[in-house]
Simulated scan of single mutants.
Amino acid sequence: MNQQKTQSSKNLSLHILALVAGAVLLVAMSMEILTGDHRHFSQNYLWIQFAVCMVFLADFFIRMTQSDRPARFLVHNLLFLLLSIPYLNLVDWFSLHLSHGWAMFIGLIPMLRSFLALYLIVAWLANNRFNQLLTAYLFSVLLFTYLASLIFYDYEILVNPHLDNYGDALWWAWMNVTTVGAAIFPVTIIGKVVCVLLPIVGMIFFPIFTVYISQYYTGKKSAD
């Protein structure tokens, strides 16, 4: 029993490390998008992405070696491995010619790895406690909306005449996640995809928030 708790604690520590690495990648990506030229990636950003992916890979292989059945662990966690590969660095090293849009899309893949780490940490912490689960949902919506605003800004700023700065992209993202809509319409394929996903996320989250408020006041009334 104690050994199982120790192993669970070690896994949580590794997931937290992966989440921190993902946060570093998000900051680096934000700086790259907000200060870059939207056509080329800086070497600093590429090296940060490589370092973060190395952390993800180290996390994966450490947990695999600690597993009683490494082959089974590999099969069941293959998605984690695929999301940890530094694809953007491979594109750069092999001088593959991709548009900035496709390169940015590839660069977003490791972010999914950090989202999975966030999910696993929340699953470990929540333990059926609704308050923590709601906090996790709220944090996820905030993070997804922020990331969507960055993606929209990077893909649209050079081609969308209605988008003047990042503030417009952030406002656009929040208006769409609340399902209100904005007067800025996407012109790129990625922008249109994000424009569809944001209201879906909002429609998933707000009923959960409504249920939480109802249960909170019902429980408070019962206690009184």
Rank of each mutant, 00 (worst) to 15 (best):
V91W: 04
W93L: 14
W47P: 01
A182P: 07
L134F: 03
V201Q: 05
S222C: 07
L198I: 01
Y137F: 14
N2K: 11
Y153A: 02
F209D: 01
Q49E: 12
P199Q: 12
L118D: 05
G107V: 03
T145S: 08
V141D: 06
S95P: 04
L34T: 11
R63P: 08
L133D: 12
N11F: 06
K10G: 06
M203G: 05
T6S: 09
S114Y: 02
H76I: 11
Q3A: 06
F41R: 04
V187I: 09
F115T: 06
F60E: 02
L118A: 13
I200V: 15
V20D: 01
V211R: 10
F61N: 02
N11P: 00
P207R: 09
F130H: 13
M31L: 12
T188Y: 00
L46G: 03
V91L: 07
N131E: 15
H162W: 06
L78M: 13
L90R: 04
Y212Q: 04
M203K: 13
F185W: 10
H15K: 15
Q7L: 08
L96G: 08
I85F: 10
D59V: 02
F152R: 01
N160V: 04
D154H: 03
I85N: 02
Y166W: 06
M31W: 10
A71M: 13
